[in-house]
């Protein structure tokens, strides 16, 4: 009972638990737990045959956290910074990881990166396709409705937001392009009719 010195009893004894659950208690002794104790010196260095590794060649000015004393000896070069997003990212790395600006700039750069690539893709033979690339086709092939409804799932309450967040910017962009094109067409037609009147 909680309001007395005694801990509430457990319904099953260790013997009962050992019978019911394969392996119950095999790691009861902390010595058998591989991450105990923490910060234990690893004599074998896990196969490393260096104290400080050779340095990977730096093929472009690699952005790095200002909280690092040097460029790490090994690093990924999967997507070097490029375009407007790349410039924002390089600027973000002038702030330490302790500054909110660092992370908010990187999050903003991710969105700029996405739109730069969307726009570039429209100049290729394989433009971005929000239908295929969101994987939404699986809704029709893998029980989209029955997986959700009648299941009392907590996430159904906010899933209606997903098409708005994913599709909204596309619809807004299409609307801007459409209204822009319409304005241009209207201006051209006005110029044409003005010119016609001038001739008369």
């Amino acid at each position: 009972m909680t309001y007395t010195p005694h801990k509430p009893p457990i319904a099953e004894s260790p013997d009962e638990l050992r019978k019911r659950i394969p392996g119950w208690g095999v790691d009861l002794d902390a010595k058998d737990r591989p991450s105990v104790p923490k910060l234990q010196f690893q004599e074998d260095f896990t196969g490393a045959h260096w104290e400080f590794p050779e340095r990977q060649p730096e093929k472009y000015p690699r952005e790095r956290s200002v909280e690092h004393g040097m460029l790490t000896p090994v690093f990924g070069i999967a997507q070097p910074p490029s375009g407007v997003a790349g410039a924002i990212r390089r600027y973000a790395y002038t702030y330490s990881e302790g500054r909110t600006a660092h992370w908010l700039l990187l999050i903003a750069a991710d969105r700029v990166d996405a739109w730069e690539h969307h726009l570039k893709s429209f100049l290729t033979l394989r433009p971005d396709n929000p239908i295929t690339e969101t994987g939404v086709k699986a809704e029709f092939t893998h029980n989209g409705l029955s997986s959700r409804f009648g299941q009392n799932r907590a996430d159904v309450k906010h899933q209606w937001l997903d098409p708005v967040i994913v599709g909204g910017p596309w619809i807004a962009a299409a609307g801007i392009v459409y209204s822009g094109a319409r304005s241009v067409a209207r201006s051209l037609s006005l110029v044409g009719s003005d010119g016609h009147r001038q001739v008369h």
Binding site: Q40, T46, E63, R64, S65, T72, P73, V74, F75
Partner: peptide, 16 residues
Amino acid sequence: CARGLYSNCHNVNPNA
């Protein structure tokens, strides 16, 4: 890494 914290390695991630 020398102390078993491989997930916290300081030699592989320049970004953070």
